[in-house]
């Protein structure tokens, strides 16, 4: 529902005063709460970069502060997640058949997917969960979804530390190609942040989206090749062409497979679609820039409903 200015039944207050606008202009007063231009908005957001990182770190620290094991959970949570997926998909459902190095394959998929899904989910709560802050202090609202995305990026670093241990245990030792994971995850982080900004705006207007997102994300996860190989499936002939293209160019699948390509020996370039880096960069640019502009366009309405 959109908010409309309902005219009052009776209006005993004063009428608009043409002299007041002139008075404001004469003394150089600016309209309060007006949306700044996009460059100015970007500049202000940059000015609040320390708040963004401090807020993200504070949330990450506070997250497990009441648990006995404290921040150990930051590593334990992704590890336990990986164990559960291994048990269900590796042992019970046996999707591992035909996939070399299944454990590294699965764990990389789970961690990279979790980065996107938790950032998107966090985005839906970035404004609705901080209405008090939005209504009390003045700052570019994009700082909140961006801080939530930064928090997930920090969490990813813990997951990647855990992943390194798992990979080494599975005989995948560090090699130069691991560095390719940096641009892949960097592009993914940009993509995620853009999506978080979009979700923050949508959820601030329609809070019900937060209830719907888990289902959307679960569907997205199952088509993203987290626990099965997209490459193998689309090379088979049963998949219609259009579906194969959609599966291959799904941004989540691209980022997952790029990271696998960087980290796992047996995951070779022939399992990737052509122009994969260009595709990953396009998605990041589209979501990052588009999400930022989309969020900015409703800046003055946040915290109102």
């Amino acid at each position: 529902m959109t908010l409309t200015a309902t005219p009052p039944a009776s209006d005993p207050g004063a009428r608009p005063h043409p002299g007041l606008a002139a008075l404001a202009a004469r003394h150089g007063l600016a309209a309060s709460g007006a949306r700044p231009s996009l460059p100015e908005y970007t500049r202000r957001l940059w000015g609040r970069r320390h708040f963004v990182t401090a807020f993200a770190t504070a949330r990450l620290t506070a997250q497990y502060s009441r648990a006995r094991l404290g921040r150990l959970w930051q590593i334990m949570t992704p590890l336990l997640n990986a164990t559960v997926y291994y048990f269900v998909f590796g042992v019970l459902l046996r999707t591992k058949e035909g996939v070399a190095d299944f454990v590294p394959f699965l764990v990389t998929g789970v961690f990279v997917w979790t980065f996107t899904s938790s950032t998107v989910l966090a985005g839906t709560r970035a404004l609705t969960g901080n209405l008090g802050l939005v209504r009390a202090l003045h700052f570019p609202r994009a700082a909140l979804p961006v801080a939530y995305a930064v928090q997930q990026l920090q969490q990813l670093l813990f997951s990647m530390a855990a992943l390194t241990v798992i990979l080494c245990c599975c005989g995948q030792l560090p090699r130069p190609s691991w560095l390719l994971a940096l641009p892949a995850l960097g592009l993914q982080a940009t993509f995620n942040t853009g999506l978080a900004l979009v979700m923050a705006r949508l959820a601030s207007r329609t809070p019900d989206i937060a209830q719907l997102m888990p289902f959307v994300l679960r569907t997205w996860m199952y088509v993203s090749g987290v626990m099965w190989s997209v490459g193998h499936t689309v090379r088979g002939d049963e998949v219609p062409h259009l579906a194969a293209v959609a599966l291959e160019w799904n941004p989540a699948a691209l980022y997952i497979d790029l990271t696998r390509f960087a980290l796992i020996d047996s995951f070779t370039a022939d399992q990737l679609p052509p122009h994969v880096w260009a595709g990953a960069a396009c998605w990041a640019l589209l979501a990052g820039v588009g999400g930022f502009v989309y969020f900015w366009q409703a800046e003055e309405t946040y915290g109102r409903g």
């Binding site: 908010l3 409309t4 200015a5 309902t6 005219p7 608009p16 007041l20 606008a21 404001a24 003394h27 150089g28 007063l29 600016a30 309209a31 309060s32 709460g33 807020f55 901080n130 008090g132 802050l133 939005v134 209504r135 009390a136 202090l137 003045h138 003055e300 309405t301 915290g303 109102r304």
Partner: peptide, 26 residues
């Protein structure tokens, strides 16, 4: 006036950025 709730109609002009004394929410 602090620019936190936009007016549905009419305008508010301010010098600088007015601030509410309150930081609890952060």
């Amino acid at each position: 006036v602090a620019g936190l709730l936009p007016p549905a109609r009419g305008r508010i002009y301010t010098r600088g950025q007015p601030s509410l004394l309150g930081v609890n929410a952060a």
